[in-house]
Design a binder for these strands. Structure first.
Lengths: 335, 335
DNA sequence: TAGGATCATGTAATCGATTTCATCATTTGC
DNA sequence: GCAAATGATGAAATCGATTACATGATCCTA
């Protein structure tokens, strides 16, 4: 692989000039510029990234960590993030943490080792390494939280209004005449789940149906949706509607309902959360809270780039619009 | 951020010794080793990655490109790849190419810029940059193809026996008495699709049903599955079974069938491909060819690491086992 | 036409690690 | 008890770029 020296030699100029041609062509005379470019092309020269990065202290990389990349919600957010990063000349280091603190820390460490310029973490736990960094650098720390908002962390983030969205979903169900509603949340350690639960409770209170709420805790996975729905639908006095905090769990719940002999939406209304691409292809098509997943990723990257460019003095949190996609899985409560 | 100089100064040794303590502790005396480690801990020193990489010409990064990360098949393969890479001390640069040649080339270029040590590409097109590299370095080129096997490319790859798998799926349908079978393939530019189609044809020939085959071309997406299924199910003389080359397309086909008033499996049997995590949660649970997706990713990484370690002289192609997961979406042909 | 401004280019320091080779102290072998 | 082997450490070159500063040429202005 040719180096800048080789190019310089071939073009009969110094390495400084080659470097200038490549980064600030304006200051070089037309003749030399052409000579250098010819040499670059002839040799197929590409600047060595490590050398550049060592000198400039920039890596043009950002780490994006997710608890589980095979989850469609996360993979869509990542997709948006990758797109925005790429467009800005950055590339994405993928960290699939599998919910493990150790892996989270490991990826956060890439910042200390100068392997990446910034981190976007799509989980609810703030790794210690990053917390420490934020303690030292405050809002200038190149850290952004995607989709989970924890104001106390002092970190910029992109998210929707989870409480309002959850309340809308519940309002829909109450409007359809449902009273006894089962809710399958995500892990309560996650602020996202707590916010949504707040919205659920607020709506229930408005409709005087707080005592009729049945709350179960899942972990956003299909399996947990199936399991928790099975629990909620067993025995007497079962809910006539279920609200799941992810579409995946709603899919599991749908399967559980089928097995329990409850037809959707006739015997059981079902609402999901996220609006993954498969939601509308279920039978019946799933009513769900639609999140702008790719946009969440793009926005997170935009926030990070702002910090990296020094355009950011205080943590900023961007709320993106959501909407309730009403489809076939919700219907009037049967008496 | 402290450098190796700072550590050396504090421990009253040379930078060479610090480096040795960190990479080959055996050759350093116990006393100095402890002194250096104390300094490392006290300063919170971490080696600068760019400097290390410049000197050693290793980046400890691999690029993995996918046509669409939000596709569950690819995200699962990536998950396996990330796991294996991480375990071996490598991290993954994610390239979501969105089926664009330009982006593919861009990511392939990371190899030339020494931004990554190797590339795994999960698509059927071999970027020019990589083809050229393979032309120069042959089997020592750090390039592996995941899941799509094209022997003529001269690239190591991990995959299943697509022809055999597709034939098994067809055999199942013929065994159930189906004659007129619709097949929705992926893009025919992809060897994976062609291999499967060969298997389909072979099975049809064995059952003397070649003329009853109805072939449509999709692009692996839900939408294309729905569209193509709609076409196949329109008019008279429609197939009694559909075999889709991805579970996503099978989901789309299921929706199309529903809309056409065909019940599954009573009026129409349906077989998918991949066995994504949602397949068993559909209604009816989807019969599908189960691929070891994460294992494909892990294997691709293992192949790449072999090349990087110089343990590889000729392209190697690993065939992983698949199996037909027979579920509720297939049943006897109605007369 | 002298003196300053402007422009194009080169020299050399620098980024932070790794690693070769040299040096010196200690053992070991005979 | 002396030469040779062994062991621990340091000095300095090196990886390949960027960039501050210096230099020389050309141009303008009074």
């Amino acid at each position: 692989m040719p180096t800048i020296q080789d190019v310089a030699r071939r073009a009969r100029v110094s390495t400084a000039t080659v470097s200038r041609v490549l980064s600030t062509p304006g200051v070089v005379s037309e003749a030399t510029r052409e000579r250098v470019m010819a040499a670059v092309d002839a040799l197929g020269y590409e600047p060595n990234h490590a050398a550049k990065s060592l000198r400039t202290l920039r890596t043009a990389k950002i780490v994006v960590t997710v608890p589980d990349i095979s989850n469609p919600f996360f993979s869509s957010v990542i997709r948006g993030a990758e797109e925005a990063a790429q467009a800005a000349g950055y590339s994405v280091l993928l960290g699939d943490t599998r919910h493990s603190t150790e892996r989270e820390e490991q990826y956060a460490g890439m910042l200390r080792r100068k392997e990446a310029d910034g981190v976007i973490f799509l989980g609810h736990r703030l790794p210690d390494t990053l917390a420490e960094l934020i303690g030292r650098q405050g809002a200038r720390a190149p850290v952004v939280n995607g989709c989970e908002f924890s104001p106390d962390l002092g970190v910029s983030s992109a998210h929707i209004d989870n409480a309002a969205a959850a309340a809308e979903a519940m309002d829909l169900l109450y409007g359809l005449g449902h009273r006894a509603i089962g809710v399958i949340t995500g892990p309560l350690a996650s602020p996202i789940s707590r916010d949504r639960l707040d919205g659920v409770r607020a709506s229930a209170a408005r409709h005087g149906a707080e005592t009729a709420l049945r709350i179960a805790t899942g972990d956003f996975s299909v399996e947990s949706g199936e399991r928790e729905a099975q629990g909620l639908l067993a025995g007497a006095d079962t809910p006539t509607a279920l609200f799941c905090f992810s579409d995946e769990m709603a899919m599991g719940a749908l399967a559980a309902a089928r097995r329990a002999g409850r037809r959707c939406p006739d015997d059981l209304s079902l609402v999901g959360f996220d609006d993954i691409r498969f939601a509308r292809y279920l039978d019946p098509p799933l009513t769900t809270v639609s999140q702008p997943m790719e946009d969440l990723g793009r926005t997170a990257v935009a926030l990070l780039l702002d910090i990296l460019a020094g355009r950011q003095t205080t943590p900023r949190s961007v709320t993106l619009p959501h909407h309730l996609a009403v489809r076939g899985s919700t219907g009037p409560a049967r008496r």
